[in-house]
Measured scan of single mutants.
Amino acid sequence: MAEQVALSRTQVCGILREELFQGDAFHQSDTHIFIIMGASGDLAKKKIYPTIWWLFRDGLLPENTFIVGYARSRLTVADIRKQSEPFFKATPEEKLKLEDFFARNSYVAGQYDDAASYQRLNSHMNALHLGSQANRLFYLALPPTVYEAVTKNIHESCMSQIGWNRIIVEKPFGRDLQSSDRLSNHISSLFREDQIYRIDHYLGKEMVQNLMVLRFANRIFGPIWNRDNIACVILTFKEPFGTEGRGGYFDEFGIIRDVMQNHLLQMLCLVAMEKPASTNSDDVRDEKVKVLKCISEVQANNVVLGQYVGNPDGEGEATKGYLDDPTVPRGSTTATFAAVVLYVENERWDGVPFILRCGKALNERKAEVRLQFHDVAGDIFHQQCKRNELVIRVQPNEAVYTKMMTKKPGMFFNPEESELDLTYGNRYKNVKLPDAYERLILDVFCGSQMHFVRSDELREAWRIFTPLLHQIELEKPKPIPYIYGSRGPTEADELMKRVGFQYEGTYKWVNP
């Protein structure tokens, strides 16, 4: 592979701008107003304001973009700056750019259920340069409990009458099928589907988006991507930290609602779906819905739930269990780990287990898709061969690698495990991989909904998990304890083995 010439960040961002501006969906010269509902909250200060700053800094926003914060707290732009700027990672050389960014910011205080507050917000936006005809993007960085009041008031008082209007809704989209349907029906009564952007930030990850290209742009994968060759698929999300004093919020939802029903299920769809007619948003989402419709409700015998306990040999936070978090209700049975087996009941995947695993306070930070292939028929190497695996590593250190057998150097035919490896950090030294939120917010500006969740996708996802969630809430089974920093409950490994996964433990990928 030829040595790549190092590029400056300015040059890299210039390439990104060229890609972005050559499309006809990006209205570079139009006025846009980006409204952050819930501007005083954690999500706004840690993710949304920093993301908008990065896009502005790199010249990736339309030229005439204004940012308006809205929340109940009586704040000023200076207050917003004070709480969000520490997350910007701005350099001293960017000081003038930073001043320009905050000059485009404003803030309006108001209630979430008060019509007069929204009329005041609308008047404020109209007073901005060309504000009355601007395109408006409303980001709901809010708890779902206020979605209905907020969307109703936005629709009645704050819509642009000339430009387009788009609304970005953060997960969780309800707690179960019934609450999700209620919320979807409410929002759909106010906005068209092409105006609604239900954001799952995992769909903005580079390697998640790469799944489609790997599958449908490489001839070698087509013939082997089926039940005849693939023994099982494992989708993993692991965090090495616990709730760390923020367990009160987590306890309301648990690990299945927080990660599995959305992030992991979306990745499953991209692995299992048929080739779409095109890369058009609805063509892709149509195929994802077909996959979900082929999955039956989760069966309790295919589920393992766990909850982390303190590690007596650990240090600091590792010595504390979930129930030691003062914000967690006493005696909570909320799971911090889950392993679930699903089956896609169609011709391509009949009988292939899709194993979804996620948890907190585990032994490493990792998100990946792992396809394990069947054993080689007619073994001539005296059971020395391990199964081939194709691994798409989402985070950290984005990579695609194939675990395969090669001859060990020497005189004899002794096979050993090795890999074919594409590590993004080595291959793409001159490429700026956008943060997931950067990519998705740019998608909203461009009107691309491919990486957002459609209402029928959402409904099918909740259909699969709601009976299990209701059973857990009714019966309150005690989750299996696992030690902070471990791989999780051993019962999860036993479940995976029972459905056909072979864990060798003899080879570990190392970032080159």
Rank of each mutant, 00 (worst) to 15 (best):
F241T: 06
F253M: 05
P144R: 02
G245A: 11
I255G: 01
Q28R: 12
R175W: 04
Q195V: 05
R175C: 12
D100Q: 15
Q178E: 10
G14F: 09
R182E: 15
H186T: 09
S40E: 05
M212F: 07
D30N: 14
N122H: 14
R104H: 12
L214W: 12
Y139P: 05
S189I: 07
N185Y: 12
F88Q: 05
Y118H: 09
W164P: 06
T51G: 05
E93N: 15
D181T: 12
G254L: 03
A141S: 08
Y147C: 01
I196R: 01
L137T: 10
F87G: 06
A116Q: 14
E206I: 07
P143Y: 05
F87T: 07
I80A: 07
G23E: 15
A25M: 15
G174P: 04
C232K: 02
E85L: 12
L60E: 07
F34M: 13
A103W: 10
L7K: 14
S73Q: 09
D228H: 11
F26V: 15
G38A: 04
K82H: 13
D251Y: 02
L214E: 01
I35K: 03
E85F: 08
Q178K: 15
T31Y: 12
M37V: 10
A25R: 15
K205P: 02
G110C: 07
Y112Q: 02
K95A: 15
H27M: 13
G14D: 15
P62Y: 05
F237A: 07
W164M: 08
K82P: 06
P86K: 10
R57T: 02
H201N: 03
P50A: 07
F34D: 04
V108M: 13
P92N: 14
R120N: 12
E244I: 12
A25L: 08
D194Y: 09
E239V: 01
A116R: 13
F253N: 11
D176W: 03
D24V: 12
I80V: 11
R136G: 04
A231N: 10
E193W: 02
L190A: 10
R74G: 15
S73I: 02
R9H: 09
D200C: 01
Y49Q: 03
E85P: 03
V208P: 01
H124T: 12
S184F: 11
F102I: 06
I220H: 04
Y70K: 03
A115D: 14
S132E: 14
A109E: 12
R74Y: 15
Y147W: 04
T65R: 03
E63P: 14
T65Y: 06
I224P: 06
D42W: 01
A6M: 15
W54I: 09
Q111T: 13
I234P: 02
G131A: 11
L98S: 03
F101L: 02
L137D: 04
T236F: 05
R182Q: 15
A115L: 15
K238W: 00
L121F: 09
H129N: 15
H155E: 08
F241H: 09
E94D: 12
A39K: 01
L203S: 01
G245E: 08
Q111H: 14
A109K: 14
G41Y: 03
K152N: 15
M37K: 02
I168T: 07
S188W: 01
S180C: 05
H129Y: 08
P143E: 04
N122Q: 14
I35Y: 00
G131W: 07
G174L: 03
R192T: 13
K47R: 09
F191E: 01
N122E: 12
L128I: 13
P172W: 03
S29L: 11
T236W: 00
N64Q: 13
A103S: 15
E156K: 14
S184L: 09
M212N: 02
M212L: 11
Y118F: 15
Y249S: 04
Q119L: 11
F88P: 00
R17T: 07
K171V: 04
G110A: 08
E244W: 13
L214T: 06
W53V: 02
Y118Q: 03
H129L: 14
E94R: 01
M207G: 06
L235H: 03
D58S: 08
R166G: 05
W225R: 02
I255T: 05
H155L: 06
D100H: 11
Q133G: 09
F253T: 04
G204W: 02
Q195K: 06
R74P: 13
M159T: 14
R227T: 10
D24L: 05
K45G: 05
L177D: 09
N105K: 00
V68M: 08
K152P: 00
K45I: 08
D42I: 00
A217Q: 06
R219T: 10
G23P: 12
G23S: 15
E19P: 12
D176T: 04
I35W: 01
A141H: 04
A115R: 12
T91G: 12
N229L: 04
N218K: 00
G41K: 04
W164T: 09
D194G: 10
V150R: 03
C158Q: 06
L235P: 02
F241I: 12
N135R: 07
A109P: 13
D251C: 03
M212D: 02
T243D: 00
F56Y: 12
T243S: 14
M37P: 04
L55P: 02
V68C: 09
L43S: 04
I52N: 02
A231I: 07
L43R: 02
S73T: 11
N218P: 04
G204M: 02
V146R: 07
G174M: 01
D228K: 09
I230K: 00
F102L: 08
H201S: 01
F237C: 13
